[in-house]
């Protein structure tokens, strides 16, 4: 078994390429949070305490729009639900870890560290998985905090950034996150219905329209998935089918 320190370093090293993609987001997050009116300490505190990229971005947008607290919390919950799948996937890996380490691992569970650790687990099994995860997650966590702080300072120095249209930078960031997924009928329909429903519901208070619109989009997506499954099944596409 390799010594723990080398596993820690291996985890950090394998995570480095992923920080190239997320570091700009940390800077943009810090800048936008301050431009949206949050004190720099709040932007950094969010990265330290919450540590969930997309939920942090969306919450800043909601705070700026005067959303109610339960709406922000519920949106955070929904946005992060995918992490339950990661939590379930890593459960067998972490079965023998002490409770405190499992709790810390849960706190540090992100898309990126999950991807790195899951790949390592498939290749090498559970041996040395804990120090490897700690190396990956700690590196990713510190990187996220440091670059959030730098972004917050930039935003603070140029306090006129909001008037320069940084509200648009957030929209552009979200659009760029969604667009690559729009390559099949279902996600396109989800985007179109959720977007139109949100526009129709924007008069609702506390950004409640956002939650409702997202629900409408998800329902449309689920309906299209189940329809596709029916038409794809062999019974529906028999050789005698006149189509």
């Amino acid at each position: 078994m390799p010594p723990p320190l080398s596993s820690v370093l291996a985890g950090a090293r394998d995570t480095l390429p992923l920080t190239v993609g997320t570091t700009p987001f940390a800077v943009i997050f810090g800048t936008l949070a301050v431009a949206a009116g949050l004190p720099p300490i709040a932007a950094v505190a969010m990265s330290v305490i919450v540590f969930a990229g997309s939920a942090q971005f969306i919450s800043v947008n909601l705070i700026g729009g005067g959303a109610a607290l339960p709406v922000i919390w519920l949106t955070t919950f929904v946005i992060n639900l995918r992490h339950a799948l990661y939590s379930a996937t890593l459960q067998p890996v972490a079965r023998d870890w002490p409770l405190a380490w499992r709790a810390l691992a849960a706190f540090w569970l992100t898309d990126e560290s999950f991807a790195v650790v899951d790949r390592r687990f498939r290749a090498h099994g559970t041996e040395g998985a804990l120090p490897y995860f700690v190396g990956s997650a700690l590196f990713f966590y510190l990187n996220w905090i440091v670059w959030t702080a730098i972004g917050a300072v930039v935003g603070h120095q140029f306090s006129g950034l909001a008037t320069l249209g940084l509200d648009f930078a957030m929209i552009a960031t979200f659009a760029a996150m969604v667009a690559p997924q729009l390559k099949a009928l279902a996600p396109v329909a989800v985007a179109a219905t959720a977007g139109s429903a949100a526009w129709l519901g924007q008069a609702l208070p506390y950004k409640l329209g956002l939650i409702g619109a997202a629900a409408v989009g998800v329902i449309v997506g689920v309906a299209l998935d189940s329809r596709r499954r029916r038409t794809d099944s062999p019974a529906a596409v028999s050789p005698e089918d006149p189509r």
Partner: peptide, 11 residues
């Protein structure tokens, strides 16, 4: 479907 739905509802 959640990420696409929420982000589109904002954008």
């Amino acid at each position: 479907h959640v990420p696409v739905a929420v982000l589109s509802a904002i954008v």
